[in-house]
């Protein structure tokens, strides 16, 4: 399989700040790749490096085998869907979508048809004559998508594209983006701080922290086998058990991750137990999330919503399977 985008030892420093620090990256052709991390972790800078808005301080970037390290953004065959859409306010929706074709010098009739097709693709057929100010957030999002896709980019970059949408719309757009990517077969690179979004949409996820990729793999792999405390906590908010507690439980002194949904209130053969005091219990609809304080260590558990839970302050024993524990690196 060809690589759509590769980073070789790419760094981008802003003065003393190492926004991107020695990153190696391979994005395969046709895959949906997500870059996940908290704000300031370097994921957006990586996206901007692919788009060409930033120049690497050192290292080499290729897009479909072409060295693009020093190529300006207007000469790269990638297009971006911006976080706040960045639609041109002085143009109609159609002119916005056709902009890329217009600057390439494609004749008015062809680009009008192409723009209309792209708008159909994002379910906005017939909206071409409107102004950007007349569109809702979700519609602008789709226009931004159409404006990028009309150029048939070899890589489509999405910078927190769903961040400004409400929950319902966001879920609908997640599914839509995913099916669009399958249909078009274009390599999508998504930047997000929302782990649910990354896990549900992407074929592969890279987790960023402090300018580095701390773990990359399939969503299942990242979720079930986090390698570090950071990944365990950031992806799916796992409980991180310190070596002292692990020593008591299993005899091994190591950091470990434990998913809240793997914990229950019923014991059984070979199950490990932690005693503690219930400090908080909140009903989340599908599950009930409880917080238990065990010797100063807070452990969260997702219990079935119908489970009867005592009052806060009561003693409680949590049970889980030994195999539910994931041993983590010593490094954070």
């Amino acid at each position: 399989m060809t690589s759509a985008v590769t980073f070789r030892a790419v760094s981008r420093h802003f003065g003393p700040v190492r926004a991107v620090d020695h990153v190696d990256l391979d994005i395969a052709e046709g895959e949906f790749f997500a870059m996940l991390g908290p704000s300031g972790s370097g994921k957006t800078t990586c996206l901007r490096l692919i788009a060409g808005f930033e120049q690497p301080t050192s290292g080499k970037i290729t897009i479909f085998k072409e060295d693009t390290t020093a190529l300006p953004p207007w000469r790269r065959h990638v297009n971006t869907v911006f976080q706040d859409y960045a639609l041109f306010p002085h143009m109609s929706i159609r002119d916005n979508v056709a902009y890329g074709l217009m600057v390439k010098g494609i004749d008015a009739k062809t680009r009008r048809r192409a723009a209309e097709e792209a708008l159909e693709l994002v379910k906005l057929g017939g909206y071409g004559d409107r102004k950007t100010g007349q569109m809702s957030g979700g519609q602008r999002q789709r226009v931004a998508l159409a404006r990028a896709l009309v150029n048939k980019p070899s890589v489509l970059l999405l910078d927190e594209p769903l961040g400004a949408l409400d929950l319902k719309l966001r879920e609908a757009m997640q599914e839509e983006l995913k099916s669009l990517q399958r249909k078009l077969g274009i390599t999508f690179v998504l930047v997000t701080h929302d782990q649910g979004e990354a896990l549900s949409m992407a074929d592969r996820v890279a987790v960023f922290n402090h300018g580095k990729i701390v773990q990359a793999g399939t969503p299942e792999d990242i979720y079930h086998n986090p390698r570090s405390r950071f990944v365990a906590d950031f992806v799916g908010s796992a409980n991180v058990l310190p070596p002292s507690l692990m020593e008591k439980l299993t005899g091994t002194s190591a950091w470990a991750g434990l998913r809240p949904e793997k914990i229950s209130l019923s014991g059984g053969e070979g199950r490990l137990a932690i005693d503690g005091t219930l400090t908080d219990s909140s009903f989340l609809g599908a599950v009930r999330r409880v917080a238990v304080n065990a010797d100063g260590q807070t452990i969260h558990a997702n219990l079935p919503a119908h489970e009867m839970v005592p009052e806060a302050g009561a003693r409680l024993t949590l049970y889980f399977d030994r195999f539910a524990l994931t041993i983590l690196d010593d490094a954070p």
Binding site: P73, R75, A86, Y99
Partner: peptide, 27 residues
Amino acid sequence: VPSNLIEASYDLGAAPAKTFRHVLLPM
């Protein structure tokens, strides 16, 4: 003029002269 409009124009293939003509000047 938000700076990301300039970036969006570059991103869509418009070199600085075209970006000036089609985005910056009209705005």
